[in-house]
Design a protein around this nucleic acid. Sequence first.
DNA 1: CTACAAGTTCAAGTTAACTTGAAGTCAAGC
DNA 2: GCTTGACTTCAAGTTAACTTGAACTTGTAG
Lengths: 144, 144
Amino acid sequence: MDPMLTITDVSRRSGVASSALRFYEERGLIASERAGSGHRRYHRSILRRIAFIIFAQRIGLTLEEIGAELAKLPADRVPSRRDWSQLSGEWATRIDERIAELQRLRSGLTECIGCGCLSIDRCGLANPADVAGRKGPGPRYWLG
Amino acid sequence: MDPMLTITDVSRRSGVASSALRFYEERGLIASERAGSGHRRYHRSILRRIAFIIFAQRIGLTLEEIGAELAKLPADRVPSRRDWSQLSGEWATRIDERIAELQRLRSGLTECIGCGCLSIDRCGLANPADVAGRKGPGPRYWLG
DNA sequence: CTACAAGTTCAAGTTAACTTGAAGTCAAGC
DNA sequence: GCTTGACTTCAAGTTAACTTGAACTTGTAG
């Protein structure tokens, strides 16, 4: 009762490569126990955790951010539905902002690119205000 | 008449770093002439081209894709408004798809994470169908 | 008992989109 | 004429999120 899963089991059921699972563990996003052999064994609840990670990635969070969210889960027990839903509280806002930006970009497709306003100085589209700052390489001035 | 811009002029007016401008040129996204000294000189129309690049990046296109779009512009003259607006034809669809996915993810926040359905096997949210294939590293199975 | 598949660690490679650094040239003000 | 800042090229470094490869060990089916 409570059969543990091998890394291949988890990989197959989640669609996440074994190498990625090891990587997530290294980054502290997931945990595993070990069989006597040294092989990883996962609790079934890992699948939900992984689904959450994938979900959060689709929304646009980095692994670091996801890790911070996951750290808020109770450590002493398997997270409940309530635990999970509390995590995603701020996300709705984040998604809404991104949707709003895309809609703004979308209307700019017809209005802005065709007209003279896509000229950097005046066009609000080329310089959206709500972009989260990015670290590292990239055109940070405009994109972040 | 028709004063050419230096790389610093263009950088300052576009917000794109000089190093990035050289990089874009290397990738064939923009072009420059050279002063006798070997220094780059840009035509004013470069600013619109750069705005277009930034815009396309916000939508989510890679530089390679943007380069392919830009290649469709007429080479023999400065692109007209019409030229520019024709490029962005397919983009609306692309934006709409991404918006739809985000909206799906958004409703899943309340419905899906809280309930038992975020269990990989059954939840459509964790495995959206409309994701464009990514090359290179990354969880391609789920995310692409 | 012997294959061979599956697991392990650790170091190094990959991709995108740039940035940074080194080493040298050019231009403008005093 | 000299200093300072802008510019050049070319090679190498950066970040995220993994993957790949090497070298070994374990588990399992026949």
